[in-house]
Design a protein around this nucleic acid. Sequence first.
DNA 1: TTTAGAAATGCAATCGATTGCATTTTTGTT
DNA 2: AACAAAAATGCAATCGATTGCATTTCTAAA
Lengths: 343, 343
Amino acid sequence: MGKQAEITIHDIAKKLGISASTVSRALNNNPLISKATQAKIKETAAKMGYRPNTMAANLRTRKTNTIGVIVPLINRHFFSSVISGIEDVAYNSGFAVTITQSNDSFEKEEKIAQTLYSNRVDGVIVSIGMETTKFNHLKHFSERNIPLVFFDRVVDEIEAHKISVDDFNGGFKATQHLIEQGAKKIAHIGGPLNLNIYRKRLDGFCAAMKKAGLEVDRQMLLHNSLTRTDGTNAIKKLLKNPQKPDAIFCANDTTALSVIIYLVENGIKIPEDIMVVGFSNEPFSEVVTPSISTIRQPGFEMGQKAAELIIEQIKQKNQPSLFQNIVMPTELIIRQSSFKKKG
Amino acid sequence: MGKQAEITIHDIAKKLGISASTVSRALNNNPLISKATQAKIKETAAKMGYRPNTMAANLRTRKTNTIGVIVPLINRHFFSSVISGIEDVAYNSGFAVTITQSNDSFEKEEKIAQTLYSNRVDGVIVSIGMETTKFNHLKHFSERNIPLVFFDRVVDEIEAHKISVDDFNGGFKATQHLIEQGAKKIAHIGGPLNLNIYRKRLDGFCAAMKKAGLEVDRQMLLHNSLTRTDGTNAIKKLLKNPQKPDAIFCANDTTALSVIIYLVENGIKIPEDIMVVGFSNEPFSEVVTPSISTIRQPGFEMGQKAAELIIEQIKQKNQPSLFQNIVMPTELIIRQSSFKKKG
DNA sequence: TTTAGAAATGCAATCGATTGCATTTTTGTT
DNA sequence: AACAAAAATGCAATCGATTGCATTTCTAAA
C-alpha cells in the first residue's frame, strides 16, 4: 500500500542541506530567515507533502491550540447550537475543539475533566451536569491557570467568566405574560434546584407573581428532570390537585410539549382552559400545534462569546483580574399556547 | 495564584529514588514491575497529583487516542445524534473525539482535514459536505493508513468502511406508500445529486413509480439545497405547473415542513389535496400539525457503529482487506401528512 | 580592503513519556 | 553456599518541533 513515510523538518533540512532550525523558523514565518530561503523551504515542504506534527510542537511549546468543551448532551438543540458557535469562532482563530458529553452523570463529568487535563487543552468551556454539586474537578483547571468559561449552567463557587441567559428575567417575563393574559393560578414545572438556571427561573416566576399580588401555591410547584416523561407525570399530578392551574410555566420546552400533548389528548383547551409557556425555543416549539410560547436563548451567540472569551484568556496567558459575568438578554416569544388577547 | 508546577514521572521517580522507566511501567500496569513497587508508585503519583502528559506519550507512541469527526453542521439533529453515538462508544474505549464542521464548504472541509492530520488523529469519521466533488483531502488519510469511515454522505471513489441508511429503500418505501394512499402525480424535491444519498433517494422514488406503472414527470422533479427557503420556493414552483402534484416526497423533513406550512397557509388540505412525506424523522416531524410522515434514520446507532468500526481498524493497525458497506435499515413512519386510508 | 554591525543560519538542549536492551536483584534448586 | 534462571529495575535513545545562544555570512561604511 502507499505506505508513505512521514516527513519531518529534518527531511526537508537534509534535502536542502540546511539545518532543521532554519526549516522550522521558515515555516513559522520567523523574520530571522531570509525571504529567499523561506520561499525555497516552503516550496520544498509543499512538494514533499510535509504536514507538521502538532504533537511535537505542542509538547515543546506547552500549548495545544485546543479547547475542551463539556456539555451534558451533544444531541440537544441548545447545546449543539452552542457547540456550533464555539467551533465557528475557534476554527477562525486556529483552535481545534474537543467535545465531550457528561450525559448529566457526575462520575463521567469528573473523568472527562481528567482526560481533558491530560490532553493539556488550553482552556475548557463547560456547562455542568444535573448531578453536579461538587466542583473539585473543575477547580483543578483554574488552580492550574487553565482558562475556564462557564455557560448556561454556571457555577457560582468558581471564579471564571460566565455566560448565561437572563433566566430570572426570562422566568419573570414568561410569568408576567401569563398574568397579563388573565392567569391567576399559575403552576411551575421546574428543574433541579442545584442548577442555578432553574433556581433563577423559579425566582423570576415568584417575583412576577408577587408583583401582581398573586399567591404562589406550594402544590403548584413541581421539580423534576424535565424529560418528556417527567413532563407528563407532572401535568397528571397538577390536574389531580383540587386547585387546578389556569396556566403553566415550564422550565423547558420539552416539558411544555409533554404538557400540551397530554392536555390536547384529554380535551383540555389551550390556551382557553390552560395556557402554557416553555423555555429555550427548541425548533419544534414553533411548528407544533398549538405552537409553544417560549423564551429564546441565543445558543449560537453564546457559543461564539464563550469561545472569544476563552481565546482571549488563553492568549494573554495569566488569568484576568476581572471575570465577566455576561448575561444574554432573553426574548419572550408569544405563540398560540398562551395567546388569548393583547397584553 | 496556586500556580502548581506540573508533575512528571521524573518527579515521582526522584521522590522514590527510582528510575522514570519504572514509574512509567508501573503506571501503565506493565507486569514487569513488582506489585509492591507498583502500589507504592501509584500511591505516590496520586498523592502528588500527577496527571500524565498525553502529548508526550502520543509523540513517543505515535498514537493520539483521538478520533476526528467531520460533519457538515453540528447543529443538526441527525448529525448531533451521530456525534453523540460516536462519543458514547469512543469514550468507553478510551478515545477522545475532536469534532469539526465543514458548514458544507469545500474549502473549509479541506482545511479541516489538514488540521486533523496535523493533529495526527488515529482515525477520521466523515460525512462530506454538499459542495464536495473532489476527494484528495480524504484520500490523504487512507494513503497514509489512517482509518477512515464514511457515514451517511459516503464517497464511492474511496475504499473504506461505509455506513449509510438504505436511502434507495427509504425513497422506495416513501413513494410506494404514497402510491398506496392513492397518489398518481407524485413530485420529488431532492438534494444535490453529487451526494449519493440524494441520488439513491431519487432512484428509489423512480423505481417505485416505475413498479406502479406511473410516469415520472420531469417538471415534478426539483433539486436544491433542502433548506427552509428552498422548500418554500420549490412548492411555489410546483404549484405553478399546469399539472399539479397530488403528493410530494421530500428528501428531508425541513423541506417537508416548508411545504406543509406553505400549503396550510394557502388553504390546501393535507393529506386530502396533497400528501407529503419527508426524510430523517427530525424531532419536530412528530409534533407538527399535521405530523409529518417520514423515514427514520438511526443516527445514534450509526454513530456507535462508525466508532466501533474505526476503533477496530485503529487497533488492528493495518487496513482491513475487506471494507464493510453497512446499510442500516430504514423505517417508514406514517403520520398525518400522508395518511388517508389503510395501505 | 578592512571591519564593525546586522542579518542569517546552525548547534544542541528541551518538552515528558516510552521502550529495547543491559544490568541488578531475587528466587529456587542442588 | 553456589549458581542458573527468573524477575525487577535502570540506562539512554527516541518521538518531531522549538528556541536560546553561538557562529557564520553578508552589508556597508571607513
